[in-house]
Nucleic acid binder design. Sequence first.
DNA 1: ATTACTGCAAAATATTTGCACGTTG
DNA 2: CAACGTGCAAATATTTTGCAGTAAT
Lengths: 155, 155
Amino acid sequence: LKTKTRCVSDDYLERGLSRFRGELRSNDLRLSQARDALVRCVLQQPGTFCIKDLVLDLTRAGVQGTHFATVYRAMPLLIDAGLIRTLHIAGADAQLYEVAFERDPLPHLLCSSCGRSIEFRSKALELLRSEIAQRFGYELSADPIRLRGRCELCH
Amino acid sequence: LKTKTRCVSDDYLERGLSRFRGELRSNDLRLSQARDALVRCVLQQPGTFCIKDLVLDLTRAGVQGTHFATVYRAMPLLIDAGLIRTLHIAGADAQLYEVAFERDPLPHLLCSSCGRSIEFRSKALELLRSEIAQRFGYELSADPIRLRGRCELCH
DNA sequence: ATTACTGCAAAATATTTGCACGTTG
DNA sequence: CAACGTGCAAATATTTTGCAGTAAT
């Protein structure tokens, strides 16, 4: 049972909610209680998470009647608002997400054995991205690059 | 309806089957007619493919009673034999695969709009991989690196 | 008030599993 | 002939959708 939450300041939550409100406003959508709770929950996720994680966390936190349908329907909004992004990972049977708000889309090392992921920065890699994008006429997304392998602990 | 198949020599198919037989033998498994047909079908897939593609192709080719369960159960064997590898792609609702047999695991540019993927080679990228692996004590898998974005046609 | 959102249930889709029977080595 | 593999159906799991009622602006 996952219980950890990322430790974030109240300010961070408010900035996130504010960004979300903006996104909603510009689409004539509304900030329901469910969405408010969802955004707070999402922004506190420690690492990668899936829909089920969110529903469990919200239920555990005493938010009444958090339904899968509601969360599923809200995810595209959170993505459009730049609060989260999707991951595309080997063997995951549900869609995984990670927080994107005020976080650089860092490349990841992902251990295919234990699932632990390491973020890393590499100037060279960023150079390469732009070089490649140019060479092939690509407009690259901000998605982190993922390298899969086995981490030190799982060798 | 996808009808295209990758044009491959009979020799290539035989080498693939031979490799597969080896894998089976060393695990006391058997080459059934269904698996024979499946391997041939798989090795002729033009680009990325999913289970449904294989079942449809086989049915279309007149192979009787190709069942999803059978194909699902065979996939891990094909992977272990090095004939195919899995991909991990945004928004795909089914697991995607690509042929790996006698093909380098090339990095890809993947268009998130049209799904078209471009393979590319980059010496610099390979250098980077090993540098990163070393720095973080990672033993990288041969999985192709994927950069997502929008291709020239979809700008 | 208007129109979006939620809860619920049901549908659609992908994947896995159990078991009786058929096939391979 | 001794496993192993297949066909089929049913179970699981994830995600989507329809609709009647509730809530946000």
